[in-house]
Each structure stands twice: as C-alpha cells, then as structure tokens.
Write a protein that binds this DNA or RNA. Sequence first.
RNA 1: GGAGAGAUGGCAGAGUGGUUUAAUGCACCGGUCUUGAAAACCGGCGAGGGUUAAUAGCCCUUCAAGAGUUCGAAUCUCUUUCUCUCCGCCA
Length: 430
Amino acid sequence: MLDSKYLRSELTQTAERLATRGFVLDVAQISALEEQRRELQVATQELQNQRNSKSKNIGQAKARGEDIAPLLAEVEGLGAELDAAKIKLDAVLAELDQIALSIPNLPDLAVPVGKDETGNLEVRRFGDIPSFDFEPKDHVALGEALAGGLDFENAVKIAGSRFVVMKGQIARLHRALAQFMLDLHTEQHGYTELYVPYLVNKDSLYGTGQLPKFGADLFHTQPATEEGVGMSLIPTAEVPVTNLARDRIFDLAELPQKYTAHTPCFRSEAGSYGRDTRGLIRQHQFDKVELVQLTHPEHSMAALEELTGHAEKVLQLLGLPYRVMLLCTGDMGFGSSKTYDLEVWLPAQNTFREISSCSNMGDFQARRMQARFRPEEGKKPELLHTLNGSGLAVGRTLVAILENYQQADGSIRIPAVLQPYMGGKTEIRA
RNA sequence: GGAGAGAUGGCAGAGUGGUUUAAUGCACCGGUCUUGAAAACCGGCGAGGGUUAAUAGCCCUUCAAGAGUUCGAAUCUCUUUCUCUCCGCCA
C-alpha cells in the first residue's frame, strides 16, 4: 500500500511511475473521491465534536441539578444527522481503501523500465555450464529411473496433477537440501530459524499483499470471499514470517530482524494450465527455505544485496551455475520495489530457470501491517522495510542437482556439501 | 468438545452510565539540585487519522474486535476472537 498523503499530493507523478509497470491509475476517480472524502470527513468530525461537547454540557447541568430538557431538545436530530454523514463517509472511505489495496508498489528508480521478462537485466553469472559427453536427461526421467524416486503417477492417484511422491534417496536428498540451506543461513548468515503456521488468516494475507487481488492463487479452507473467516494455506513462508512484525513497534536496536524458515508452499497455479506440466517445476505443493529481513528504511537496499548474496551462496556451495537477473518494472511482483531473480542452469532444457526471487518491498507491506520501529526514544514510530527471498526453492534445487550432477548411467553425484546430510554417500544410484 | 473466569496505555493496576480531558504506581524523557551520580522535587510521556506550510495549534477515533441501547458507553445488551483454570479427547 502506498502512503495516502503521498498518493494525494503526487497523484500525477505516482500514476506515471505505476504506468512503467503496466498499472493504470485512475487519477480522475481518485481525485474526485478524495475531494468527497475531505468534505465528508470534516463535516462528520464537526458533528461528532458538537455531540461530544453538548453531551458533556448535559452531564454537567444534570450534576448541578438543572433542568436538562432544553439541552436535550438542542441535540435532537443531531444523532440522525451524524449517522447519515457517517454512512456516506464510510462508503467513500471503503472505496478509497479498496483502490489503495489494489495499487502495486512503486518501482525503485534504479529498476530498468520494461514491459515483460524480456526487459530484465542480467547482472552477473556464476559457474561454468557443464558439458556432457552423452545426451543429458531431464529430472523426470532421471528421478523415475532411480527406483521410482520421483513418482508422479501415484501422486495423481492420491491428490491430483501437480503433486509428487518422493521415495528413498531422492526423498532424503530433498530433505538434505532443506537442512543444508537452513544450517547455512542460521550458522553463516545470521538468520534465526522459525517454525510457523502453514494456515494463516485473512489479516496476514492482506498484510503481505496476497489479498485482496490474488486470492485465486491460493488454497482456502473456505470459499475465498472477502468476508469469509476461513484460513488459507500459505503460498510462501513470507506470509507468516513477515506478519510477525504486524502491529509491532521495534526498538531501533532490534533491527535488522533476520528470519529463515523451511515450509511447504501451496499455490493453486491458477492461469498456468499447460505451463510446466512435466515434472517438479510448477507444483501445487513445494518446499522452500525462505529468508526474511525487517530493516531500517535506509538500509533496505543494502540488505537486498546481502540477502540475494545469501541465496546465491547456496547455489555456489552446491556448484550449480546460475545468473542473477534484475527484474524490470513490468516483470516485478505486486509489492516489490526492486527484485533480483536467481536463475539456475538446467541442462535438459538448455536454459536458466528461476530458482529464487529476492525482493525489497520497501514500506509497502509495513504500511499494510503497521510494522514499525522507533527511531529514537520518545520519537514517533516509523514504518520499517521488509525484504524476502527464497534461499532456495527446494524442489527446483533438487531438479538442478539431478540434472547437473547426472552421469551417463543415470546415477547422480552428490555435491560435497550435501554428503554429510546423506550419510556420507557420494552418489545416488538405483 | 463441556463448565467457569477474564481481556484497560511499554508493564502493573483503578474505574460498573456524565467534573475520566482514562486515576495511581513502575519504566522512560526533560528540568531543578549536585563536582558527577543517586535520592528528592517539578514537568512531560500511547497509537491512528483529519485540518494545515507546519514535526504549531485545533478536532476526530481508539479501554480485544464487531454490532446495538443512549443526548452521552471502558462501564449496559448481543455476536465474535483470544487468554486462563478444571474436565474430556489426543501426538
């Protein structure tokens, strides 16, 4: 959510910046509503003021034992007038609120302007793309061959498409990856590990920006009506972890807060039918190790570089080739002001695929959540900045390991850093 | 799931329809005093919003949340959420 005062005073400029990400801001509608809002709010508050002072007079007159009948006559009709004013004001406020919640974040001025993913900028690359003296298989073929380690057929029977059953050494490798990532971030990068709810309430989803616009991307325990009191399965640990800061005021010394959590993520993948239907790339349920930082506003951009580096470190230690993309205005997520995507090399597809997305949300989520810090004892609290990134998506990392570390006979070498988590084994074979 | 109790400012804790503009204490901030500190004393001290050039004034909202009664609600009524105690069930 953008600052309403800023939105009001810099309406044209805001519309221009939002246009770079393909969002059309209805300037005329907002100005008209703002004008109504101002008039109605002033009028309503004036009526409230009258009611308060007159009621107080009645109380004092009564205490003195005076006749209050004339005073009561004075306030007659005031209540009805006030109710009417309130109803009008509430309607306008609700409309403005709905608009405000639907406006995406302003892109940072350093973000390249572009229409879609073709406008993204490659920032750097790491690692050499492996060459094979045989035709590399994709992870589905490799996983199914390894004693049915990746079992999509049974997943369909149990749940449906876009689910998987993992078995044996593949299941263990999947677990090893998550453990390795958590240990790295907690022991080397200074994050505190969290275990969080996988079902969250509506307030949390509004806080991080999934609602009101993206309810269709989530699984809900009740129909996704706005008034529904049901819970929703988390699409990312960003939701429960970032919402720890909701309605909180941190001391300056408490910042930055750095959290990591390994959770399953659930996405309905609405609108993606037909895309990535094969394999683990796009699932309804997948595991992710998430990184979240709550920072002072002045430090959030530096924190984004740092957090992205923490995610990169995972790929580096696993020896997986990747590139870092700076997303353009048109390809960024709803709440982000600046985003880096990490894309890992997948030999079977002969291309880079997204494996992590690291974003500085600025004060966008903090304003929705009222997540604040006190810059100085006795001073007013200010909004903090929130950041999050995948460190990494576990399923896609598994895909990358299988494909990049495959050998001619279909066996998989295990990267050295994972071997302690795999009982000392150096490779997986059927 | 059943029975009961409860939810007030950073914390503790008064307040059961109108001098409550939420008492008091602790914590915190400023000042006086002091070589300095402590103590004592004096003053200040929640959050959100509107108006405004204003971080000045003035005003509105806020005592878990929502709805209601009333000229007036922390206080009365209803609903919801959460917490605690006991019982049941359970990993």
